[in-house]
Structure formats: structure tokens, C-alpha cells
Amino acid sequence: MFERFTDRSRLVVKGAQDLANEMGHKHVGTEHLLLAILALGGGIAHDVLRAQGLDAQKIRAAVACPPTLDAHALESIGIDLNVVRAKIEETFGPGALDEDVPHEERHGLLRKRYLGGRFTPRAKVVLELSLREALALKHKHIGTEHILLGLLREGKGLAAKLLADAGLDFADLRAKTIAAIPKAHKEN
């Protein structure tokens, strides 16, 4: 499949891996793909996202610092996080709540561990969907626009949440991405 990727879309995939490593994340998720599109600069996906006002620094901050539970707020309602953590580790083993396990992989009673800088199942689905998007548009290549369309079509990963939190409408973003393709091809 990667033989169909353009040089720029390969840079996005490699950039997602590099960003995950740089941020100390043990997985490469949809959020890293989105951030790599924005960080790379140029390309249809980048241009469409920037035109919608998506800010790379805000996305990076959200990916680097996911929301955490406020221990004091929980204590005020009688929940002691240290007791909860101890009970979970007693049941599921030490490190069951460590942040190197992506949220997307914590199902199944926390049994799955994600090792190395690998792609999460959702990120893999996005890359597969980028191929389907290219085929549906009768394109012989997979560009950054197809990766963005794959992110939108998957619609459940952290990247989708970040896009929704930024107030972007997926149908509108999809339409704008598809509309930008012929324009970009005429300029090249």
C-alpha cells in the first residue's frame, strides 16, 4: 500500500512516528497523523485545515498534554485516586494505568499493552481508509488529502475529537478537501 503514497504523504506517516517519539508516546495514533499533516506544511490537507483556522500549536499542546483528572476535585466527592490506582494494579498488575497504553487500547479490562512506536488500530484504519478514499476518487496515488479524508471517515479517534473540539464540521471539511483536489492538480 505504501508504494501508492506520495512523497509528502510518506513524510506525514514518518512525521507522525517522529512526533510520537519526540513526545515520548509509545504509540502512533490518529492524533499524530493529524499533527504531522499540520506540522509538515503545504499539501492539500494542510492547506484545507489551515483555511479552517486549525492551529498546529494548539493541536500539539492538546496531543502533548491530554486532560487529566483533578485529584482534589475527586477527593471532594470521596474518591481517593491512590486507593483506586492500588486496587487496579492489584487486580490487573503493576503499571495497568501507565500512560504508555493508548486510551484506544485500554478496553478488554486493561489487558492489552502497546509496546514500541507502533500504530494504534485506529491509525491503521485511517491509513487503510486513505487508500479507499483514493480509489473512490479514482486516484492512483495517496496524498495528504486522502489521509485527511481517512481521518474524517474513521471519525472516532483522538484526531476526530480534536477536529470536533475545534468546531469543524466533518461533512463540510470533507467537501472542502475534495473541492481543493482539482484546484491543487491544476496548479501542479
Rank of each mutant, 00 (worst) to 15 (best):
L151H: 02
L135S: 09
D165S: 05
D165G: 06
E154S: 03
M23F: 14
T6V: 10
K161C: 03
A159L: 10
R10M: 11
L110P: 01
K183S: 11
A86V: 14
H107F: 12
V12Q: 06
A179E: 07
I181V: 10
V84D: 10
A166S: 14
E31Q: 09
I88A: 13
F119S: 08
D172E: 15
G155T: 07
L173R: 11
A159M: 12
A184S: 09
A64K: 10
G78C: 13
A64C: 14
P102M: 12
K140W: 00
V28A: 03
V125C: 06
L135N: 08
G167A: 05
R118E: 15
V12H: 03
I44F: 00
R174F: 02
A184H: 15
K156P: 01
E99H: 15
L173S: 10
S76F: 01
G43I: 03
V13N: 10
G108S: 06
K112T: 06
I181E: 00
T91M: 02
K87D: 10
S130L: 14
I44M: 02
V126P: 13
N21V: 10
R50S: 03
K14F: 01
E154C: 03
A175Y: 15
R122D: 09
A86Y: 10
L162T: 05
A123R: 12
G53W: 13
L38S: 02
I178Q: 12
L33S: 00
H146M: 00
D165L: 11
H46I: 09
P182K: 00
T30P: 05
A164W: 00
A180C: 01
E22C: 07
D169G: 13
L131M: 13
K156V: 08
G108R: 07
H72V: 15
L148A: 03
L34Q: 01
Q17A: 07
K156G: 09
L40D: 04
L158C: 07
K58E: 07
I44L: 05
A96V: 01
H72D: 12
G78Y: 10
L81V: 11
A45R: 04
E22T: 15
L110I: 05
N82P: 02
G143R: 01
G117E: 05
H25Q: 13
I147N: 06
A160E: 04
A134R: 00
R106D: 05
A20Q: 11
L109I: 12
A184K: 09
L34I: 04
A164L: 13
G116V: 14
V83L: 09
A179P: 05
Q57M: 05
E31W: 08
A73T: 07
E104G: 06
K161T: 13
F170I: 13
R174C: 06
R113S: 07
L152E: 02
L173E: 09
R113Q: 13
V12T: 11
G108F: 11
E104M: 08
F92P: 05
T6F: 09
G43E: 14
R122G: 11
G116I: 12
G157I: 15
E3F: 00
C65W: 13
K124I: 13
A51D: 11
K186V: 09
A166Q: 01
G78P: 11
G29T: 08
E75C: 01
K176Y: 14
H146N: 01
G29H: 06
G117T: 07
T177P: 03
E128T: 04
L54G: 05
T144G: 02
L152V: 14
L173T: 06
A51T: 08
S130R: 06
